[in-house]
Amino acid sequence: MRILLIGEYSRLHNSLKEGLLELGHEVTLVSDGDDFKNYPNDLSFDAKWSKSKLLHYPRRAFHKFLKFDIAAFERGIRFYFLLPKLKHFDIVQLINEASVNTIVSFEIFLLKKIIAQNKKLFLLSSGADAICVQYMLDKKFNYSILTPFLENPTVSKEYPYILRYISKSHLKLHHFLFQRIKGVIASDFDYAIPLQGNEKFLGLIPNPINTVKIDYISTEIKHRIIIFLGINRHNYFKKGIYFFEEALQIIKEKYDEKVEIIITENIPYQDYISSYSKAHILLDQVYAYDQGYNALEAMAKGKVVFTGAEQEFTDFYQLTERVAINALPNVDELVKEMSFLIENPHEIVNIGKNARAFIEKEHDYVRIAKKYVSVWE
Rank of each mutant, 00 (worst) to 15 (best):
Val375Leu: 11
Arg11Glu: 12
Asp284Tyr: 04
Leu43Ala: 11
Val286Phe: 05
Glu260Ala: 03
Ser10Lys: 07
Glu22Val: 03
Ser218Thr: 08
Asp332Ala: 15
Glu297Asn: 14
Lys113Ser: 13
Pro58Gly: 03
Phe306Arg: 04
Phe141Ser: 06
Glu343Tyr: 02
Pro160Leu: 12
Asp315Trp: 02
Gly240Arg: 04
Lys200Trp: 05
Leu177His: 08
Ile209Ala: 13
Gly127Tyr: 15
Thr219Glu: 15
Phe109Glu: 14
Phe306Glu: 07
Val259Ile: 15
Phe79Cys: 06
Cys132Gly: 02
Ile193Ser: 04
Ser52Phe: 01
Arg59Ala: 13
Phe237Met: 11
His234Phe: 13
Tyr317Asp: 09
Lys17Pro: 01
Gln285Leu: 06
Lys139Pro: 05
Lys140Cys: 03
Gly230Phe: 09
Glu343Gln: 07
Ser169Cys: 06
Asn152Ser: 07
Gly203Leu: 05
Asn210Ile: 06
Ala247Ser: 12
Phe237Trp: 10
Val104Glu: 13
Asn101Met: 10
Leu43His: 09
Ala279Cys: 09
Val92Gln: 01
Met136Tyr: 03
Asp34Ile: 02
Met136Asp: 10
Arg224Val: 11
Leu94Ser: 03
Leu171Met: 15
Gln291Arg: 09
Asn101Arg: 08
Lys252Ala: 09
Val184Arg: 00
Lys252Ser: 13
Leu54Lys: 14
Lys258Arg: 13
Pro194Ile: 10
Ile6Gln: 10
Gln196Glu: 15
Tyr365Ile: 04
Ala128Leu: 02
Ile162Leu: 14
Glu347Asp: 00
Pro84Asp: 12
Glu297Val: 10
Val155Arg: 07
Ile262His: 10
Ile209His: 08
Ile145Arg: 08
Leu204Lys: 11
Val335Phe: 11
Glu253Met: 14
Ala300Ile: 06
Phe65Thr: 07
Ala72Leu: 13
Lys371Pro: 00
Ile225Thr: 10
Asn118Tyr: 14
Asp284Gly: 10
Arg356Val: 09
Lys139His: 07
Arg59Phe: 05
Phe176Gln: 05
Ala186Asp: 07
Leu110Glu: 15
Asp256Leu: 05
Ser169Met: 13
Leu202Lys: 10
Tyr289Gly: 01
Ser44Ala: 03
Phe65Lys: 10
